[in-house]
């Protein structure tokens, strides 16, 4: 699901939750989830940087085709990490939206 679709779906649900007395609990749960995911994404960010640096260091010793494959795999994984960051942003926005309604 695209982030925009997710935002739309969440907005619909949040509208229905505004009157629920437990909306605050949900907002807190979302914030905790975002925090934990940001920790994991922080680790990924540092590790990708380290792995890229190592790949650059050993690139001369690798066959060009394998180096290209390795770099493509890293790029793909970094794209997946970026997608996760975007989704965390969506969850965080949902928590803020719930806060505003309580």
């Amino acid at each position: 699901m695209e982030a925009k679709e997710l935002i739309k779906g969440l907005e619909d649900i949040l509208t229905g939750l505004r009157a629920d007395p437990r909306a605050g609990e949900l907002a807190q749960l979302l914030r905790t989830t975002c925090h934990d995911m940001n920790n994991a994404l922080g680790t990924l960010s540092l590790e990708f940087f380290s792995v890229n640096a190592i790949v650059d260091d050993v690139s001369a010793a690798l066959p060009p085709s394998e180096l290209a494959e390795l770099k493509a795999a890293l790029l793909n994984a970094e794209g997946a990490r970026d997608a996760c960051e975007e989704l965390v942003g969506v969850l965080h926005a949902s928590a803020r939206a719930l806060d505003r309604t309580n």
Binding site: N39, A40, G42, T43, L46, E47, F49, S50
Partner: peptide, 16 residues
Amino acid sequence: DDDASFVNALARMVSE
């Protein structure tokens, strides 16, 4: 930091 994975990654980066 209470996230051991992050601590390991960051400590390695600082040491490097």
